[in-house]
Design a binder for these strands. Structure first.
Ligand SMILES: [Mn+2]
Ligand SMILES: [Mn+2]
Ligand SMILES: [Zn+2]
Ligand SMILES: [Zn+2]
Lengths: 127, 127
DNA sequence: ATATTAACTAGGAATAATTCCTAGTTAGTT
DNA sequence: AACTAACTAGGAATTATTCCTAGTTAATAT
């Protein structure tokens, strides 16, 4: 993988945010530094970075989002505002019985917890 | 929600399979009974059934699939053949600390385990 | 049984997300 | 400096899904 200004800025934009943005959002951010960048370039770089294990793809309601954090963590999605938050659980043992029970070899997992974020719970009681 | 032959067959096709099919696969199956059914009708009915809590949507690598089983269960996806299998884990406590740790109200979760299914592990050693 | 009508249908057009294509450019190597 | 594989912008193509419209029908009321 070769260094390019486009790839570098795509990666930095993603690594600087706490959110889990779409390709389109990343595109808008990168355009502020490289106005001529194309959406295809953003998609290509995101795919290369994800395939290279430098970023993660996360799948939210059938839409692809990206995550610059590569430490093992889980996600909480608010069913009202749709925001995605990181949560850190200690679930190393979660799949320990799968190999003997099912014969599957486990290489990873993704846990998405759903519910209402603090902000949306507060809004509800105000109304 | 009104009864229609189209909806009934869409639902029955989905409830009869162990797989987690796409709308397109369900469309092909239903066509064997109603050759004139349109793909739009399949999508509309799947959405209505999912919104009505009669079936589930599951999200696989950014693609939407459907699941006719509504009992709480988790999924294992083979990273080689991409098949999705049901796994039944007892994880009721998995999110019990989320409310105090993060202030989030939890209403559900989805766990996808990744790895290699039995068949694909066997194929590997044969080659 | 007949009338009524809101919810449905088929078929096809529209939309949206993502990938593909092409000709020109550039980062890294020699 | 020359080389070239990997890159880029821009736009076309593809794919999954939704939307639109005119006609049909399941469920209810008379
Ligand atoms: Mn994250
Ligand atoms: Mn299932
Ligand atoms: Zn929220
Ligand atoms: Zn497999």
């Amino acid at each position: 993988m070769r260094f390019s200004r486009q790839r570098d800025i795509v990666l930095n934009v993603l690594q600087r945010t706490e959110s889990h943005p779409t390709a389109e959002w990343i595109f808008d951010q990168v355009k502020r530094e490289i106005p001529s960048i194309s959406l295809g370039t953003v998609y290509r770089n995101l795919n290369q970075l994800a395939d290279g294990g430098i970023i993660q793809r996360i799948f939210d309601n059938g839409h692809v989002r990206y995550d610059g954090k590569m430490d093992q963590h889980d996600h909480f999605r608010c069913i009202r505002c749709q925001q995605i938050f990181d949560v850190h659980l200690r679930l190393e043992d979660i799949t320990k019985n799968i190999p003997q029970d099912y014969g599957f070899k486990v290489t990873g997992y993704a846990l998405e917890i759903r519910g209402e974020c603090h902000q949306c719970q507060t809004k509800e009681t105000e109304q």
